[in-house]
Design a protein around this nucleic acid. Structure first.
Length: 722
DNA sequence: TCTCCGGACTTTTAGACAGCATGTC
DNA sequence: CTAAAAGTCCGGAGA
């Protein structure tokens, strides 16, 4: 189908042709002929990179241009929100406004009302729904990207609930990877279904075993026995490779090992670009290994890296500076990083109870990264059989069908939170209405019988009543209580809120960082670190040493919570070090964690600390305790001791600069105001830009003069420099 | 007596959403 | 119920 023939607004065609697209891919054409353009719901199940985004863009923009209102585009990751936001920005030439909103920024909900296309994570949109944002009623279209995540254990229920809320109120376009039961999903959503495995770049799949590469078409190629030769070979051909492994350690090891082989194939300019890249990376034990690998044009990519480094690597890969990335599954579902050859080293993964086969769906997503549109005619996806029987791998992953999707609504943790939200934020008045809502979910559609779900819901309702989240009047109608409503809006697990509430008296008696941090770490919303075997004794000792500061009892060795508790103690200790200004590098070493892990813990602790304070406010707070908690929150956010709190409020002053200022004798804003700029500039980390920002923040008059400007003006920064 | 090596035994293991008010080194 | 690689410990051989 030609772009010209599209039954959509001319302006849309112009923009598309502006991208150099004249002809639509067959599945795109099929999708657009399915009735979506006339407002019908659609489930589009086609491989990654086969043009789902363009379909959704056409549907969104066409709808907005003809009907007005808003379109919401849901993604599973913050990084993807960013990526889609940049892509959709292009449509602003037609007068549409695009915004992205995630937990990271732009939470002023009403402000979003000025935009036409809103990209959001599913959880963020759920949160917006809970806050009852006024513009939700203008949403005419919801695009749910990666909708197969409805089957994910911990996050699927959220997506399912959002779609249930919006079903019938807005048009729904669900974009999915190929799954075993797409038709079931389509039936639930009352949608047309377009399924296809067509790809713009041909995909060749194969299994590698002891030097033999068995292609799906029966051809066999021969290579050196070590699978690494597959990656090296790709680079020799002037291409790139993406290797998937199942552990961080594996990613690092293989990256360094491949690096020494790939380095020989690099050109001078490539080596220079890599050196440039390396010099821009911060130093710590993890990046030290990364830099070693990068010298040979190879990188590893896993959640232990900070966001900055991950993005850096992804960009460098796209620009072909980096030839090979060895990644854990972070990259499989993340931002778009296609490569000529994808090598899957592991098909098993450790998951709580032991090793499991990675689902076909996920392996197919990894394989789907093979082939760069516009650059490659064909992409190659190769599974390495190391110990596994190659025949089994071919049957399961190459010829096999992906798994069916199953509703995860019944997952206790999410369900608890969702039931609360239904009552406190979505006006569900009684049990009958609750059941009525649940009957419209995918769970109900799929299982038919909702009696076990109802039973669970009933249990949760009793839990919520018992803990004063909600109440029930004599006619058995639900009453939302402030504690419940706030819990739901803070987006924390009711169990977390209950733990907080129970701890308030103890906190009032003995407010202290360690006790509070252990409390935060003990909630289900915190991803705690794990205490390693050899560390266990140390943390147990620490717990006993700090026993009087804790708000809970130390469990016995036999207790099932014992292991978890030690992890909480470790997490609390890390947070304690953080607010005592222990340098990051030392934290990484002492606790054997990566930058990404610390970042994650801090991010969660920050959010939970805020929530703790917000909930405390509801229970006749004592002013001094409240102030104590607020200060601790600030210390947590900035990683500083109490004495730096004042300085850290200044723009661009974090834990390092604040400490430098303090140690140089500038201990307060007052000191800074009285000081000569010249002296302040002596302080490590304080340059012109920073000082300028501080003065602007404090409302001090100043101007940065060019060299030719007169140097005598009052308040001129350069006056003081002399 | 010290060092090195190998085998037996032990330990470890992917990822990442949410609030709110503005800016880390 | 299912694995595999790295780390640790210990004893024995050799210097």
């Amino acid at each position: 189908m030609k772009v010209d023939e599209l039954p959509v607004d001319e302006r849309i065609k112009r923009v598309i042709r502006g991208r150099g697209i004249e002809e639509l891919y067959p599945p795109q054409a099929e999708a657009l002929k399915s009735g979506v353009l006339e407002g019908k719901n659609l489930v589009l199940a086609i491989p990654t990179a086969s043009g789902k985004t363009l379909v959704s863009e056409i549907v969104m923009v066409n709808k907005l241009l003809s009907e007005g209102g808003k379109a919401v585009y849901l993604v599973p990751l913050k990084a993807l929100a960013e990526e889609k936001y940049r892509e959709f920005k292009e449509w602003e030439v037609l007068g549409l406004r695009v915004a992205a909103t995630t937990g990271d920024y732009d939470s002023t909900d009403e402000w979003l009302g000025r935009y036409d296309i809103i990209v959001a994570t599913a959880e963020k949109f759920d949160s917006l729904l809970r806050h009852g944002v006024s513009w939700i009623k203008d949403v005419k279209l919801v695009v749910a990207d990666e909708v197969h995540l409805i089957g994910s254990y911990d996050r699927g229920a959220t997506l399912e609930m959002i779609l249930t809320h919006m079903l019938g109120k807005a048009q729904i376009l669900a974009l999915s990877a190929t799954v075993g039961n797409a038709e079931e999903l389509a039936e639930w959503l009352d949608a047309s279904l377009v399924v296809s495995d067509w790809r713009p770049v041909e995909l060749r799949k194969g299994v590698f075993h002891l030097g033999q590469l068995f292609w799906e078409d029966g051809k066999i190629d021969r290579y050196p026995e070590n699978w690494e030769s597959l990656a090296v070979d790709a680079v020799k051909k002037g291409k790139q490779a993406l290797v998937f492994v199942n552990t961080r350690r594996g990613a690092e090891k293989e990256a360094i090992s491949l690096s020494s082989k790939v380095s020989k194939l690099l050109t001078k300019p490539e080596t220079r670009r890599l050196e440039e890249l390396i010099s821009s990376i911060e130093d710590n034990p993890t990046t030290e290994k990364l830099k070693r690998a990068l010298r040979g044009g190879v990188a590893f990519h896993h959640a232990g890296l900070s966001r900055t480094e991950r993005t850096l690597i992804e960009d460098a890969f796209r620009s072909r500076t980096v030839k090979v990335i060895v990644a854990t599954p972070t990259l499989a579902a993340g931002v778009n990083t296609p490569a000529f050859r994808v090598i899957i080293r592991d098909t098993k993964r450790y998951a709580n109870f032991g090793w499991i086969d990675i689902p076909v769906l996920e392996i197919q997503q990894m394989m789907g990264r093979a082939g760069r549109p516009k650059y490659d005619k064909v992409g190659e996806a190769i599974i390495v059989a190391r110990t596994e029987d190659p025949k089994k791998l071919i049957d399961k992953y190459i010829h096999g069908k992906p798994e069916k999707l199953f509703s995860m609504l019944a997952n206790e943790q999410t369900f608890r939170s969702q039931v609360l939200a239904l009552i406190t934020n979505f006006g569900v008045e009684d049990f009958r209405e609750l059941i009525e809502f649940l009957s419209r979910t995918f769970y109900a559609h799929q299982r038919g019988d909702t009696s076990s779900l109802e039973y669970k819901a009933k249990d949760i309702v009793y839990f919520l009543i018992e803990n004063e989240f909600i109440d029930m009047d004599i006619e058995n109608r639900f009453i939302a209580l402030p504690f419940g409503k706030r819990t739901s809006q803070l987006y924390i697990d009711p169990l977390t809120a209950k733990k907080f509430k129970d701890a308030f008296p103890a906190i009032e008696r003995n407010p202290n960082p360690f006790g509070i941090f252990q409390l935060l770490a003990s909630t289900p919303d915190m991803a705690t670190l794990t205490a390693r075997r050899r560390e266990m004794e140390d943390y147990l000792d620490l717990a006993y040493e700090m026993e009087e500061h804790l708000y809970s009892n130390i469990p016995y060795y036999e207790d099932s919570r014992f292991q978890g508790f030690l992890g909480q103690v470790k997490t609390a200790k890390v947070l304690l070090d953080w607010i005592n200004e222990v340098p990051e590098a030392r934290i990484y070493e002492t606790y054997n964690i990566d930058p990404g892990d610390l970042y994650r813990v801090l991010e969660l602790a920050d959010w939970l600390m805020y929530s703790l304070i917000e909930l405390y406010k509801l229970f006749e707070p004592k002013e001094d305790v409240l102030q104590y908690l607020r200060d601790l929150h600030l210390r947590l956010r900035h990683g500083v001791r109490e004495e730096l709190l004042e300085l850290v409020k200044l723009p661009n002053i974090g834990r390092r600069r604040a400490r430098a200022l303090y140690n140089a004798g500038f201990r307060s804003v007052d000191d800074i105001l009285k000081a000569k700029p010249k002296d302040l500039l002596q302080v490590e980390g304080i340059g012109l830009k920073i000082l300028e920002g501080i003065y602007r923040h404090l409302g001090v008059e100043y101007t940065i003069s060019e060299k030719e400007k007169p140097k005598k003006r009052k308040g001129n920064l350069y006056d003081f420099l002399k």
